[in-house]
Simulated assay, not measured.
Amino acid sequence: MSTPPLPPQASTPQGVPPHYAGAGGGAYTPTQVRSPEPFSGQGGGPGGGPYAGQGGEQTASRGRRRSRGVLWGVGGVLVASAVWAAAVLTVPRLVATGDPAPGTGPYRLVDDLCSTARVATFNQLYPTQSGRPYHYSTRHPALDDMYCSQYLKKTGADSDYVSLYVEAQLHKAVNPKPEFEAQRAGLEQRRYQISSVPDLGQEAYVGYLDDPSTSDSSWHYITQVLYVRDRGLTYYLSWSGSFQDGKTSPPDREQIRQALLIDSRDVLKALGGS
């Protein structure tokens, strides 16, 4: 089967270093699917940046723009810091922190989210691992963060693979509700189809995006992602894959949605939820 053309905008999975192929135990470099934008806003989501491997003049141009951007950025930070300091001294209410942190409830940090997040339904749909899963956990008085990414195939001989990304964050210093709502609005602006999910945390929704390649419109890059907020916990599980019109079948959208819901309930329960 032919390799799909790379879409013009995408990104390396959040938390996965550029040398992920080495961490995965081989030269396998997953660059043809997209990753969701994590709730933390730390990294690229769908359309968040160029694909690894796109380069040449574009890379050099981006490097020049980045250098100029750094200089402007430093100046902007200094100005913003001065303005912020003046606001703190003169108008304290402008810098109020808003709603108090709701607490993390029963949820707990785990060292290896890949081991905890079994995603049994997806493992039935795609029983073959491609490389080793990647994970990290970080601790901070204000925020604990857990992340796992893995690449799955239906059979070992299959050239197609799908990507799963899961992240759970425990917000201990702020209420994540306003940013969670902003995240949903941002996905809607990026033409994700959003549907609310009842009876999962305090707030949950599924986003779906079919993004055809600009260089070959027969190739489609599909993302389905479930976001959940429950008190101080924010969580997402994302599935990403691709298909080509007339040559491969599109993924079953409802089947993937149900897998997201079933596996996420299991993951949240494993993290201490009910």
Rank of each mutant, 00 (worst) to 15 (best):
T138N: 08
G53K: 05
I256N: 05
D230E: 08
S81R: 01
A168K: 03
S195P: 02
L152E: 09
E57D: 15
D252K: 05
S196Q: 13
A185S: 11
S61N: 09
G76N: 02
D160T: 13
D230C: 02
A52H: 02
L143K: 11
E203H: 09
L78K: 11
L71V: 14
S35T: 14
I262K: 02
G48V: 14
T3G: 01
L271A: 09
P18D: 13
Y221V: 04
Y236I: 01
G207T: 07
P18Q: 06
Y136K: 03
C148S: 06
E181V: 10
V88Q: 14
D145M: 03
A117S: 11
L78P: 01
P4R: 01
G131Q: 05
P251T: 05
V206Y: 02
V225L: 04
E203N: 13
G76K: 00
R184T: 02
A101W: 02
Y147W: 11
Q58E: 14
W219Q: 10
Q150H: 07
P30R: 07
Q202E: 15
E167Q: 15
P102S: 12
A142F: 00
G98Y: 08
A270V: 15
S67W: 09
T12C: 04
S40R: 08
Y134R: 07
H140G: 15
Q54I: 06
D230Y: 02
Q9H: 06
K177A: 15
L200P: 02
N123A: 13
A27F: 05
L94E: 04
R231P: 00
T97Y: 01
V197Y: 00
G156E: 07
S163R: 13
A87S: 09
Y236A: 01
R253M: 12
S195G: 10
E179D: 12
E181L: 12
K153H: 11
P50T: 10
K154R: 15
K247N: 00
P133E: 04
L187D: 09
Y205H: 01
S40F: 00
R139I: 04
D111A: 07
A182H: 08
R190Y: 01
S159R: 08
G25S: 05
D210Q: 05
L237G: 03
P212D: 10
N175L: 02
P92I: 11
Q124G: 14
G186T: 14
E203D: 15
S67R: 14
D160L: 12
G43R: 01
G43K: 01
S137H: 04
R34D: 15
R265D: 03
R257F: 03
G73T: 11
G26Q: 05
L6M: 10
V174A: 13
V91P: 01
